[in-house]
């Protein structure tokens, strides 16, 4: 009886999961396997023949100057993550217990995250307009004669993108921090206060260490989310001026759908996968070590 019950359970299990599994197979697993195969070919869209070329795409990537430019830009892009995390921690601590209208303020800080997408990217494009945009208008107004060119010069464009990204991620990180701060036992803070700890000491010595697992989680998930994103950059700069905002994910997109070098693009996309996998492994290792309460 038990055996037939197990069998029935198995069948039911697959009935429940089946429809979803079919989609995951069709739109995730098979494409992933196909992409892995493409990495070793010279597949080009519309070209009549495809050849197996072994590791040539990987060799090409490692010798491609633009690949390293993209890596460097990606690194600068990722700098936005820790900056946003530190700022959002400060905002979360401030909103946690010591303000009125907490919910309204929380919503305002969170708003950029939910309205993400190209629309806000275009707003920032005008805000950053170098000659007479509002940001440089303001900077000139307070006496800075030569404000940065923001998105229009190769030296500053990636940092302008970082500013947009910090603004975008801040609300998300803040929400997670607020949830984490609420789990800190009240007694701890009370005890510290009675012992005469200053607010700064409480933040530095109690809150920050106790939310460290959250910080770590936000860092890793933020890095992964950022490294995958290219929508905002494609919308505003298409990787320019020059190649100054071509990040890795955008570099893949351009190779695949601008130059139709799809085999090559597949190879670079697996390099991106390797980076994401390293972040994920770090997260597993870190979770074991950092969760200390």
């Amino acid at each position: 009886m038990n055996k037939s019950w197990m069998k029935r359970q198995s069948r039911l299990g697959y009935i429940f999961i089946g429809p979803n599994m079919l989609g995951v197979l069709l739109f995730f697993i098979i494409p992933a396997a196909y992409s892995f195969y493409l990495m070793f070919t010279d597949y080009k869209f519309m070209s009549p023949e495809t050849h197996f070329i072994g590791l040539a795409n990987i060799r090409r990537m490692l010798g491609d100057e633009l690949f390293y430019v993209a890596l460097k830009n990606t690194f600068v892009f990722l700098l936005a993550v820790p900056i946003s995390i530190v700022l959002s921690f400060i905002v979360a601590v401030a909103l946690n217990k010591s303000v009125y209208f907490q919910k309204t303020l929380r919503a305002l800080y969170f708003m950029p995250y939910i309205t993400s997408g190209v629309a806000v990217a275009f707003v920032w494009m005008l805000l950053f307009q170098p000659s007479s945009g509002p940001i440089n208008g303001f900077l000139k107004g307070i006496g800075i004669a030569h404000p940065p060119g923001w998105l229009s010069t190769t030296g500053s464009s990636m940092y302008a993108i970082d500013i947009i990204w910090v603004w975008f991620m801040l609300g998300y990180n803040m929400i997670i921090y607020l949830a984490a701060l609420q789990e800190i036992p009240e007694e701890l803070m009370e005890a510290a206060k009675i012992d005469g700890a200053r607010p700064w000491q409480i933040i530095r010595r109690i809150m920050w260490p106790l939310v460290s697992p959250t910080t770590f989680l936000l860092l890793i998930t933020g890095l992964i989310m950022t490294i995958k994103n290219f929508g905002i950059i494609q919308a505003i700069t298409q990787g320019g001026p020059g190649n100054s905002t071509t990040v890795l994910s955008l570099f893949i997109y351009q190779n695949a759908f601008r130059y139709y070098e799809m085999g090559y693009a597949a190879a670079i996309s697996w390099a991106l996968f390797v980076i994401i996998m390293i972040f994920t492994v770090l997260q597993w290792l870190g979770q074991k070590r950092w969760v200390h309460y």
Partner: peptide, 28 residues
């Protein structure tokens, strides 16, 4: 629902979360 292969299948699901959309664009 308890059934054979459930944990392994769930692991496959989770591992797919690691695959960035850029890997899937071309084959799709």
């Amino acid at each position: 629902i308890q059934f054979k292969g459930r944990e392994a299948l769930f692991l496959v699901y989770l591992s797919m979360m690691m695959v960035p959309p850029q890997v899937l664009f071309v084959p799709k």
